Amino acid sequence: MTIREQTEALEERTLSPYATLAARSRGREREEELCPLRTVFARDRDRIIHCKAFRRLKYKTQVFLAPVGDHYHTRMTHTLEVAQIARTISRALRLNEDLTEAIALGHDLGHTPFGHAGERALDEIHPDGFAHHAQSLRVVKKLENDGKGLNLTWEVRDGILNHTSGSMPSTPEGRIVRLADRIAYLNHDIDDALRGGVLTDEEIPWETRYVLGRTHSQRINALVVDTVENSTGELITMSPRVEQAFLALRRFMFEQVYTNPIAKSEEGKAEYILKRLYDHFLHHTDELHAEFRRICEEDGAQTAVCDYIAGMTDRFAIQVYEDIFIPQAWNK
């Protein structure tokens, strides 16, 4: 037996009856030779970590645009925290950690620069609309690897596409990532809001502090432990008491942080930048990189321009905007 086959046999013996086994994956869109060491889900995880879109997450906004300070969260740190929370839950429920981690690491690959402000801008201007979960799937199916995509398994692609609103993921591992995403962003956004002076500890609703705890670690621990204690493996859920506190905290964050003028003060500028870039490249497709000129021929100019802008980091979008629209100093 290969090491991969030994791992698959171990999964069969030790994982929950509800776990998604690598040996029973629905497979890839294009067949390929199996790895002698890694299961198909472990291989997917590694492909995501090594892809270009994953590296760009380091310079994409989470909530605060262009924050001053080294400790604010980015799309990369958010992704890593989602993966950590999801793996903890998955391990406790004896589900497939490799699948869970692959979905978590890939779930935001299609996010725009400037966070949800960028997503709104592209959704408004692009005729087909824009949603980051659908774009994340497009990244792994087509945009990575010189247009060939990463050829991920069906289970990972399903989890990436359905990690946010809309249809539920088909696997319990995907449903764990969907919940872990919310647990992660609510808690690290509180940290960033406290650091940025948008919130104080005393403003956090007392009922959520009483149920979930006062600190970052206490809240995450309470949510994770409660999820493990109340989930069956197939059904991923919280107790009514903890879920109610969690939803109250989410409402509070939307009211006090996600629409707060301090946190959102630069979003209008960010949306303006992306809309100007979209319009410019739509009329100057010859300025696109070769890979996106190819997409112009295959899927149309609007899709190619949307792909190009969605893949930008915050700082690259600003630099491109300045290069195109801001007069440069002239040197003799």
Results as ranks from 00 to 15, higher is better:
I3L: 13
L15K: 06
T20K: 05
R30T: 12
E31Q: 10
E32N: 00
T39F: 00
F41K: 01
R43P: 00
D44T: 01
D46F: 13
H50G: 08
C51P: 02
C51G: 01
F54G: 01
F64M: 14
L65C: 08
V68A: 11
V68W: 15
G69S: 05
D70K: 09
D70P: 03
H71C: 13
Y72V: 02
H73G: 10
T74I: 07
H78S: 07
H78I: 12
V82R: 07
R87W: 01
L105A: 01
G115W: 01
G115L: 04
E119Y: 07
R120Q: 14
G129M: 05
F130L: 06
K142N: 15
E144C: 05
E144N: 05
N145D: 11
G147A: 05
G149H: 03
W154M: 04
W154S: 04
V156P: 01
G159P: 03
G159D: 04
T164F: 10
A180Y: 03
A180C: 07
G197M: 06
V198F: 00
D201Y: 08
E202H: 08
T208K: 08
R209W: 05
Y210V: 15
Y210W: 15
H216I: 12
R219T: 06
V225F: 06
D226W: 11
E229N: 15
S231A: 07
S231F: 07
G233A: 07
T237E: 14
M238W: 15
Q244H: 14
L247R: 11
L249R: 14
M253K: 00
T259H: 11
A263L: 10
S265H: 10
E266N: 14
E267I: 08
K269N: 12
L274R: 03
H283I: 04
D286C: 12
C296D: 03
A301Q: 01
M312P: 01
V320H: 04
D323F: 10
D323M: 09
P327C: 02
A329T: 08
